[in-house]
Each structure stands twice: as structure tokens, then as C-alpha cells.
Amino acid sequence: MYDWNRSCCESSQPYSQLETDKRFFFPWFPNQGGGSAFGPPSSPPPIEPGQSPQAGPPSEPPPSFVPQQTQQIGTFAVDPGGIRGCLFRFTYVWLDRFQQFWFYPTFVGRTSVAGYRWNGFRWMYFGIDLNRIDSFTCV
């Protein structure tokens, strides 16, 4: 019979230490600062070129106007180099299927972009494939 008063995953470490050492639960994850996966971080996590160490949402709402859309007829996907110039700037995005919104990009990858999308009340973390973006403009 199972003893419900006994923990299924006992450890010799105190609970407070387990709470802060996430690697106990996910030992296959690399250490964020590099170095040994089971030792303390040797340095802060690396910052990629063009990225900011403080990539949180903006502290204010986006502008109250909607910019005029620029036509990009015949474009199949947005170039990552083009939208990279909008990093950490208010950017208005028009998607396929007529969706449009204010966006604050914080990361641009080879095929996607991530950042914060304004939902009318607050910033929400959001990511999307570049081929879904019809056009964009940053202010």
C-alpha cells in the first residue's frame, strides 16, 4: 500500500535549496552561465549581438495612432535583417488574414520574431513566424 505521508522523491538537500536549484529537477539542462552543468555559473548568460540584457516589455502603452500600411506586393516573407532594425522600438505589424497590432520586438531569429504584443490593455509575450507578416513599420 502507498504511504501518502511520505514523499515520492526524497532528497538529502533541504527544500529551500531544491527550490533555487532547478537543475535538480532538470539535470540535462545546461548551466545558463556556461561551465559545468552541475556547478555554479561561471559567468552571466551570454547576450547575443543586437539583443538587450533588459528585454522586458515597455513601461508605457504604444502610440495611440495606427500608421499607414506600406504595400509589399509579391513579398513572401519578411527579411530578418529588415525587422531587426525595429528591435526595442514600437512596431506596427500587419499579418496575413488582416490581423494588425502594436508589437515591441525583443528577439529576431532566422525565421521568427518574438517580443511583446499590445492587447489593448497590457503587453503580452508573443512570437510569430516571419512568413506570417505582410508588412510592418516601426516608430
Rank of each mutant, 00 (worst) to 15 (best):
T111S: 11
Q99T: 07
N119D: 15
T106K: 01
Y104A: 07
W118Y: 12
L130R: 03
Y125L: 03
D129G: 09
F126V: 14
R117P: 06
F126Y: 14
R97M: 00
F121Q: 13
R97N: 00
G120F: 14
Y104F: 12
W118R: 01
Y116V: 06
R132C: 07
T137G: 09
T106S: 07
G115R: 01
D129I: 00
L130F: 03
F107V: 09
R117S: 12
G120N: 13
D134P: 02
Q99D: 05
T111C: 02
N131I: 06
G127Q: 14
T106Q: 02
N131E: 14
F98M: 07
F126G: 08
N119C: 10
R117A: 14
F121P: 03
F121E: 09
I133L: 01
G120H: 14
R117V: 15
F126K: 00
S112C: 00
F103D: 01
V113T: 12
R110I: 11
V113N: 06
F126A: 07
A114H: 08
F126S: 03
V108P: 09
R122L: 13
T111Q: 10
Q100F: 00
N131S: 12
Q99H: 06
P105D: 04
V113W: 02
R117M: 15
N119H: 12
G127R: 15
S112M: 06
D129E: 09
